[in-house]
């Protein structure tokens, strides 16, 4: 078990250390994830129902939106 864990660790550790093009790609992935989860999710894509409906009253909120118009 320990050997397997050690081998797995080395697979990832050596793999990441020896990356060339991979470094650029990982940098792009991290920038992209930052933009998606921090900038877009926090500032532009907040859950509409979470912000506008009281907890537990989501069904009533939706009913008011789609049945009372």
């Amino acid at each position: 078990m320990m050997k397997w864990l050690r081998n797995t660790w080395h697979l990832y550790y050596d793999g990441f250390r020896n990356m060339t093009l991979g470094r650029t790609l990982w940098a792009i992935i991290f920038v992209k994830l930052f933009v998606i989860f921090v900038v877009l999710k926090l500032f532009f894509f907040r859950g509409y129902i979470k912000e506008h409906a009281h907890k537990g009253e989501e069904a009533e909120f939706i009913a008011s939106k789609i049945l009372d118009n």
Partner: peptide, 9 residues
């Protein structure tokens, strides 16, 4: 994300 924000109903 768009589902939750733009298409909430």
């Amino acid at each position: 994300f768009e589902f939750g924000t733009n298409w909430s109903n």
